[in-house]
Simulated assay, not measured.
Amino acid sequence: MTSLDDASDTGTAGVATQPIERAIEFIERSFAQPVTLATLAATAELSVSRFAALFRAQVGISPHRYVCLVRVRHAQKLLRGGVPPSVVATEVGFFDQSHLGRHFKRTLGTTPAAYLAAAE
């Protein structure tokens, strides 16, 4: 089972330039809200296509995948704190509990319930 508690597990491939760092900081602050590629590109002061290419090259994954990783990392913390999965889902920006479950399993290889059972 993989854990996303370390920043190194979020896919960061190397040193990011200032525009990409601004976008990452925006994601870290706003992950629970809808985060669009256009918003991230504007935050980085780049065109959408240039931003997407630079982000993938510097971080190692797509911006959307990074947002999902950040959301799952925060979901892990809330779940460990005893917050019900249905509440966690909306708190971290997923549409509903099944949306959380799909991304959680894709990211960590386990469901939220199995993750909690293994953590006990």
Rank of each mutant, 00 (worst) to 15 (best):
M1V: 10
M1C: 05
T2F: 10
S3Q: 14
L4S: 09
L4M: 07
D5P: 05
A7V: 13
S8N: 13
T10V: 14
G11L: 06
T12V: 15
A13M: 10
A13K: 15
V15H: 10
V15S: 12
A16I: 03
T17A: 10
Q18P: 05
P19K: 02
I20L: 01
I20A: 01
E21G: 03
R22W: 02
R22V: 00
R22M: 01
F26G: 00
I27C: 01
I27G: 00
I27E: 00
E28D: 09
E28Y: 06
E28V: 02
E28G: 04
E28W: 04
R29I: 00
R29T: 01
S30K: 10
F31W: 02
F31C: 00
A32H: 05
Q33K: 08
Q33L: 07
Q33H: 06
P34E: 01
V35W: 00
L37V: 02
T39F: 03
A41N: 01
A42V: 00
T43R: 14
A44Y: 04
A44C: 03
A44D: 01
E45L: 08
E45Y: 04
L46P: 03
L46Y: 07
L46H: 06
S47K: 13
V48F: 06
V48C: 03
S49L: 13
S49R: 13
R50E: 13
R50L: 11
A53Y: 14
L54H: 13
F55N: 12
F55E: 12
R56T: 15
R56Q: 15
A57S: 15
V59Y: 14
V59C: 08
G60L: 15
G60I: 14
I61M: 15
I61Y: 14
I61N: 15
I61L: 15
S62F: 11
P63F: 07
P63I: 05
P63H: 07
R65G: 13
R65I: 11
R65N: 14
R65M: 12
R65E: 15
Y66M: 11
V67C: 14
V67N: 12
V67K: 12
C68P: 06
L69W: 08
R71Y: 10
V72F: 11
V72D: 05
V72C: 08
R73P: 06
H74S: 14
H74F: 13
H74W: 08
A75Y: 06
K77M: 07
K77N: 08
L79I: 08
L79A: 10
R80S: 06
G81A: 06
G82A: 05
V83I: 12
V83P: 03
P84L: 02
P85D: 03
S86Q: 09
S86L: 05
S86M: 07
A89G: 03
T90M: 07
T90G: 05
T90E: 14
V92T: 06
G93T: 02
G93F: 02
F94Y: 14
F94I: 03
F95G: 08
D96F: 02
Q97N: 09
Q97H: 07
Q97L: 06
H99Y: 10
H99T: 10
L100E: 02
L100R: 04
L100V: 03
R102T: 12
R102L: 09
H103E: 09
H103Y: 09
H103F: 10
K105W: 04
K105M: 09
R106N: 11
R106D: 12
R106L: 09
G109V: 02
T110C: 11
T110M: 13
T110Q: 15
T111G: 12
P112D: 03
A114V: 13
L116T: 07
A117E: 11
A117P: 05
